[in-house]
Structure formats: C-alpha cells, structure tokens
Amino acid sequence: MTTVAVLVDHRDGAVTRPSLEALTLARTLGTPVAVWLGSAPAADAAALLGEYGATEVRVVDAADARVASRAAAALGAASADADVVLVISTFVTKEIATRLALATGAGVVVDAAGAELVDGKVETFQTVFAATWDVRTRIESDKAIVGIRPNTTIAAPAEAAGAATVVDVEVELPATRERITHVEAVEQGEGVPLAEAPVVVSGGRGTGGDYALVTELAELLGGAVGASRDATDEGWISHEHMVGQTGTTVTPALYVAAGISGAVHHRGGMQASGTIVCINMDPEAPIFEISDFGVVGSLFDVIPQAVARIKEHRGA
C-alpha cells in the first residue's frame, strides 16, 4: 500500500486547482493524504480535499514556514509514513523538496509533467531543453519526492470519495539563521495566477507597452496575461507576468504570443503548452517555428478582429 502525501497549495484559505490536480495524480499512485501548512482549513476546504481523494488532511500550524528549512521540517513531520510526497513545482517548493530529501534520503524530481509506479518505483516524465526533449526518470530510493507542474493532470473528483479526517500534527520546528525582515504581498489580479491558467495571452515588444488588447483577449478566453523579458525590462508590466526560463514556466492548453519573437529564454518557459498561436510582424521570428497557428501581421489589427469573431460566435 503506497501512501502519497500531497502538499496542498492554498491561497486566502482556498485550495488551488493545481492541488486538486496533484490529488488526482496521487490517486493513481496510491492512497492520498493532504498536508496543509498554516492555520487549519475551513470545513469546505477540507471537504473539497476529501472529494478529490484525500483520506486525511494533516495540518501543521507552522508559523514562519516561508523559510524553506522550516517548511521542510513541517512537511516532513506530516509525511513521515509516506512513500511518495507530491508538491506543486515552484521555486519555493523546490527548495522545500531539496531540504526534505536531504533529511529523509528521498530521491527528487522537480518540474515533472507526470508520474507513475513501475515495479514499485516512481517514474516521472519531464520535458527539457525548452521542451524539445522528453525525459523519463526513475527514482531509485525508497522514498520519492516529485514536484509536479500545474496543468499537467486534469483534476477530477474521486469516484468513491469519503470525508477526509482532519488531523493536527505537532512538530517542533528548527530555529533558522535566516530571518525575513519584510514581506510585501504581490497584488493578485482577479483572474487565475499565471502558472495555473488554462489559457495564457502574452505580449512582448510588439505591444509597444500597450497591454489593453492582450488583456482583453486574455479575459475573453478566461486566461492570464503574460509577457516577455523585453516587456518586463522596459517596465511595461511587472515581473510577475514574465514567462520564461527565469520567470514563470507555463503549460496552458492554449498559449497566445502577441508581438513576441520567441527567443530561446522565452520558449523555455512556454514551449510545452498545448496549442500555441502567435501574431508577429516579422515572418522570420523564431516563434513561428513552434506555433500551431501563426499570423504574420499586426496584433493591433488581428486581436480586435479575433475578439469580435469569438464574441459573434458565442452570441450565435
């Protein structure tokens, strides 16, 4: 019997969709238990985790879990019996996974697009080199930690879901040498966060700094707004929107690149997306090489027309 601990990502007390995706994946590997760092979840959040297959919700009320070593100790205490630990792959959870692996001897794969059990060992799949190669990795150690990317599993409730039991886990967290002296919350837009969005519409140099059309199309498609490094460097849009190897890596079902040439640094952050569409004035732009549908033209002409057509279709 394989126990799979899932580190739940939650925002303002609500379970995020990638957490439900991770629970869905966890059910294919064994029996999921949810690990919740922070003050105890509300009844509806715990119930939702149960619907997606968690048999328990293990709560560690860990103050100051922003420091990786403390979060790793909290997660470790709540997942001591787990054969597999799943986290949503982010810069922060990768540090937590690394610390937990060193404490437990577990093997780690991060940025995975999927995982399965083969002869009792966890094997993961990833795309690497700007999504030009597929790699399968086997975790040889008894305990496995996997960082899974959002949008790589379709979240679905468990068929025979029971109620999850909420359990408090007591743990003495280690003192840390580091201290966080200032935290300023990033203003979260109304839409879905970039990394989790099923649709991403990104604007680059070609926008000239005008994100009105990009935003309009993103909202129409229920997606998030992204940007290239050029655009964030220009200060046209904040760094949180940057898609690329050093910004956010996204794998939405649809990626629209408007006025983005597609330098390798950008492609590395979006090339594994489902369908890729681009609009660019330069027919030689490398983005065309990886686009399913590419338009040589001005985004200022193309986007308004596309928006009108989609609205017309929906109204019909």
Partner: peptide, 21 residues
C-alpha cells in the same frame, strides 16, 4: 537517487499553419 531511463527528442509539431494578414 535518480536515474534517467529514457530520453528522446519530441517530434516536431504537425499541420502547422502560417498565414499573412
């Protein structure tokens, strides 16, 4: 603790469309 068991290039996308406005 981990070993790469398979690595293969991803096939190029098929049926790509490129139009000029």
């Amino acid at each position: 603790r981990t070993v790469v068991v398979d690595a293969s290039p991803r096939p190029a996308k098929e049926n790509r469309v490129k139009i000029t406005d």
